[in-house]
Design a binder for these strands. Structure first.
Lengths: 230, 230
DNA sequence: CTCCAAACTTGACAATTGTCATGTCACGAC
DNA sequence: GTCGTGACATGACAATTGTCAAGTTTGGAG
């Protein structure tokens, strides 16, 4: 029983937005709509994929658990993001687990529905590839960050991505837990705290889940250039 | 002027192997076959993708160059590997650069050829998704390694992946430069040297581009568990 | 064969990060 | 309201890694 507002969000998602109206309707009609509480599991690593997921509200994290139990956050998704495309269309297990990190609404499109529609119209395949490419690209960007930037620089880029404007002053809300931000950026919470302190020297003030950026250009310069100064 | 042996390698690639014979022939016939010298560029970051690439011989690295000039290796491909699928089918620029790190033979399938065939048979789309998923998965695995393992552990896993057997003693050849191995594993060459020294305590001896592993299980245990012992 | 440039190793040192311990603060249960 | 749990900050310390500066080795060019 999806609300019209939810449908509107789904239509705007990267996965669906370039599809003809008629196909989107078919998919929305056959989708499963669910709510999740904070901390609830959406699917587990090694589980067989049976659907593609679209986040309508809230935040979802994808993560891997190592043999030793350590957790590595792979990505964090929110309204309009889809995930699991490449996995659902082949009978392979998920390489990651998914968990709601805030109360969430998620739409699930069963893979058989998507598959059959794909055989009717090759355009669907291109749409799925578009969404998959976006994930690929974001993973590549993350890899670059991890390999070539210091912790404080990664935090700076994270903040820059939250900014709506291109330059000048900006205030942003941290979208989720600092613990999760730390995980997403590949560091421990303590290191994130220290990274925030360092950013004070480039005009960043953190207050609760609220960040004040004095000058976006200064911060961007810090993110892209030398961490050695100061 | 492809050799039969080259065609055979292409047919076995993840991208083509599940396609009906007839389609594979169509693709092979319209593909471009090229050789590259060591160090030669195959394509550059930001360049528009016009083809999907399949490595027939030699080694190719994909990497990103940061605004400051630092280089982050994203992946290293060899015989039978394909790359650029998700990019070629949409008019978007490559997120990475590609360079031959040894003399190479590479087959290029122009994207229009693939696209038109895809509209004829949706099965092609599934094949492309299969290859793309493999890349996605390997990037996720890399992210996990970078975030959750020490340098020496990553080197251990790298060696384990080179082993043909499951347990016991094993000798492997390092497939390419130690500098490139270091880049692929997200560390400096000096750190790689040190990581190799540490692995001596778990029965690994490095000689030139040759590694002797005394006991694969011991090494696997090191890779998966605590780096603190010893 | 000789020589050179690049790859590689090693040591000393500095910077960064993880770990452990402690303390504060906010928020929900009660 | 009080209590208690978990998030967050911070300091001290250890471990890891990057940086810089030698040396050694290796694989061609000539």
């Amino acid at each position: 029983m999806p609300h019209e507002a939810q449908k509107a969000i789904a239509r705007q998602s990267l996965l669906l937005r370039s599809l003809p109206e008629q196909h989107v309707d078919t998919l929305l009609r056959q989708a499963v709509w669910r709510q999740y509480d904070r901390g609830e599991t959406i699917f587990l690593q090694e589980e067989e994929a049976k659907a593609v997921h679209v986040v309508l509200a809230g935040w979802v994290k994808l993560f891997r658990v190592t043999p030793t139990g350590a957790e590595a956050v792979v990505s964090v998704f929110t309204r309009g993001d889809s995930f699991g495309e490449a996995v659902a269309l082949r009978d392979v297990p998920y390489p990651v687990s998914a968990e709601a990190v805030s109360p969430c609404e998620v739409m699930h499109i069963p893979s058989p529905v998507l598959l059959s529609l794909m055989r009717e119209d090759a355009e669907i395949g291109v749409s799925i590839l578009a969404a998959t490419f976006t994930h690929l690209h974001s993973l590549v960007a993350q890899l670059e960050q991890l390999k070539a930037q210091t912790g404080a620089q990664r935090v700076a880029e994270f903040l820059l991505n939250l900014c709506e404007v291109e330059s000048g002053t900006c205030e942003v809300e941290l979208p989720y837990d600092k613990m999760l931000i730390a995980g997403r950026l590949g560091m421990k919470p303590e290191s994130l705290s220290r990274a925030f302190s360092r950013l004070k020297t480039v005009g960043v003030k953190i207050n609760r889940n609220h960040a004040d950026i004095a000058d976006i250009d200064v911060l961007r310069d810090y993110a892209e250039n030398d961490p050695s100064e100061r």
